[in-house]
């Protein structure tokens, strides 16, 4: 691609930009799906960042240990679910404050992944290269390869929306988040639904981490989630806690990020590190514009 700022406006560029945006957005979408599932059931989950980080490390570890990246994906799912179970146990059995528990999960995840990086890989900042999921290069499409996990993500988005809005279980889940007393009166085991929801949210965030570690690159790096879990939360809030919309918000986000990177490449005079704060500023702006008109699940954070 010619390194010319006007190239941004070439005819096929919007599609490529959308693709690049999707690549950037994929981990966010995974995490925001997780956020929706958990918070719709009534449990605040700010530990998504830690769950994503744990998933990223588990993916690298699993892929390395088994020599197969899909083993890493499975490991990420399980590790994320385990961290989710920790948060769920603290909040639902231990009756801990959801926000404090989420923060604790983030801190534990940071420590655990750093600790294990040292022990398992004997490395300090980055792990050595591990088998990655790779991707398919479409001839003539010089945007980026299509990672195998991306179609899985799209299917998952549809599945989540379907499960949440078109099945009995989804209705009950949402009832747990809106009025647990009414749900209990109907015979719904609220605690079990919530527990399952939080574990599922951890698993989803973990898969987002897998996308980061063995999908986009092929190694684990300390703190690699880089705030994406929190941006996913912002997207979730902006989308009114609706998984389908949250996926779109994340996509929009990814496109803006990709555009920002293009701009950075085209105008080198822009302060590069300051540009890194762009995603967070945009997330904040989105929230500032939308928050006053949004309604959170009525029983969020409560019993």
């Amino acid at each position: 691609m010619p390194n010319n700022s006007l190239a941004v406006f070439a005819p096929v560029a919007p599609l490529m930009l959308a693709h690049l945006g999707f690549i950037k957005a994929a981990p966010l979408i995974w995490a925001s799906l997780g956020g929706c599932v958990s918070e719709r059931s009534g449990v605040i989950n700010i530990g998504l960042e830690g769950m994503m980080l744990t998933g990223a490390f588990a993916a690298a570890w699993g892929a390395d240990a088994a020599g197969n990246p899909w083993a890493g994906v499975a490991a990420a799912l399980l590790a994320g679910a385990a961290m989710g179970a920790l948060h769920a146990a603290a909040c639902l059995w231990g009756k801990a404050n959801h926000i404090v528990s989420g923060m604790a999960v983030n801190i534990i995840a940071l420590g655990l992944t750093g600790f294990l990086l040292s022990r398992v890989f004997h490395a300090l900042g980055n792990s050595p290269e591990v088998p990655s999921l790779g991707g398919w290069f479409i001839p003539g499409w010089n945007a980026a390869p299509v990672s195998p996990l991306h179609p899985v993500l799209i299917v998952t988005v549809f599945a989540t929306v379907y499960l949440m809005y078109r099945t009995r279980y989804g209705l009950r889940l949402r009832a747990c988040g809106e009025s647990p007393s009414a749900a209990r009166a109907q015979g719904v085991q609220v605690t079990r639904y919530r527990f399952a929801a939080v574990c599922a949210s951890g698993a989803l965030a973990g898969l987002g981490g897998a996308q980061l570690a063995i999908g986009d690159v092929s190694y684990f790096s300390v703190g690699m989630s880089g705030g994406r879990g929190f941006i996913a939360l912002a997207a979730m809030i902006c989308a009114g806690w609706r998984p389908g919309r949250a996926a779109w918000v994340c996509l929009a986000f990814g496109v803006i990020e990709a555009l920002g990177e293009r701009l950075q490449g085209a105008v080198p005079a822009l302060p590069s590190r300051l540009m890194l704060s762009l995603p967070f500023l945009i997330a904040l702006a989105m929230l500032a514009l939308r928050s006053s008109s949004l309604r959170q699940p009525a029983a969020l954070g409560r019993d």
Partner: peptide, 19 residues
Amino acid sequence: LPKEAVFIMEGVLLLSIAV
């Protein structure tokens, strides 16, 4: 003991207090 273990200690303490 890798120094990141300190974060594990902090996090577990915070979680315990939360519970």
